[in-house]
Design a protein around this nucleic acid. Structure first.
Length: 196
DNA sequence: GCTTTGATGCACT
DNA sequence: GTGCATCAAAGCG
């Protein structure tokens, strides 16, 4: 609990969102909470490059997207559709405004806790399949806003990077602006990917 | 201020 | 495959 020696360093995030999104696959997302620890292997991520109309930071700094400009390696968590939380890792240099949306992980530790939080879903491979499913199973809300992913209760460790051959690319889910960009990456063999 | 939209998930057909 | 719940932030004027 609380150990961050294996967490990916800030330099990992201080690169373009496109690069970081692909390289986050296979990594380990960990959240230590009062209820216990949950962790999972990242199997799906989308890049939101600063020069992209679909990116929350595209039109400049606002109260909502402030964290995206605060430097790489921090958690950007936002509320959407009136009921869902989504979790991003801020990427690029400070002041740029871009991030990677984590869309799905394969549960590793804390499966019982995830099932309690989800209440509904019983199949393990689907507990964190989808950006809002993931945040619910991990207990992530605005309370974790801007936590340091390199050294806090919410962090990402090295895990096992995937071979290029195991990575599939597609359009991002639910995006209208910049829809043609193939900026969604996922591990094609994983049962936990949210959409095919 | 007032309206529109959305990086969704789920129930239902 | 389709429709809906539900509301904060952005966009507009």
């Amino acid at each position: 609990m609380g150990e961050a020696v294996n967490a990916l360093p800030r330099s990992f995030y201080a690169r373009p969102a496109l690069t970081v999104a692909r390289e986050l696959l296979g990594r380990l997302l960990i959240h230590d909470s009062a209820e216990g620890t949950t962790s999972g292997r990242i199997v799906e991520a989308e890049a939101y490059h600063h020069d992209d109309p679909a990116c929350h930071a595209f039109r400049g700094r606002t109260q909502r997207n402030e964290v995206m400009f605060g430097g790489p390696g921090y958690a950007y968590i936002y509320f959407t559709y009136g009921m869902h939380w989504c979790f991003n890792a801020v990427t690029g240099e400070e002041g740029v405004g871009e991030a990677v949306l984590l869309r799905a992980v394969e549960p590793v530790d804390g499966v019982d806790l995830m099932q309690q939080r989800r209440e509904r879903e019983l199949r393990v491979e689907r507990l964190c399949s989808g950006p809002a499913n993931l945040t619910k199973a991990f207990g992530l809300t605005g309370a974790q806003q801007s936590l340091d992913l390199t050294s806090s209760a919410l962090r990402i460790e090295a895990g096992t990077p995937v071979e290029d051959l195991g990575v599939a690319v597609s359009r991002r889910v639910g995006v209208t602006a910049g829809a043609d960009n193939l900026w969604r990456f996922y591990i094609s063999a994983s049962r936990s990917v949210s959409k095919r």
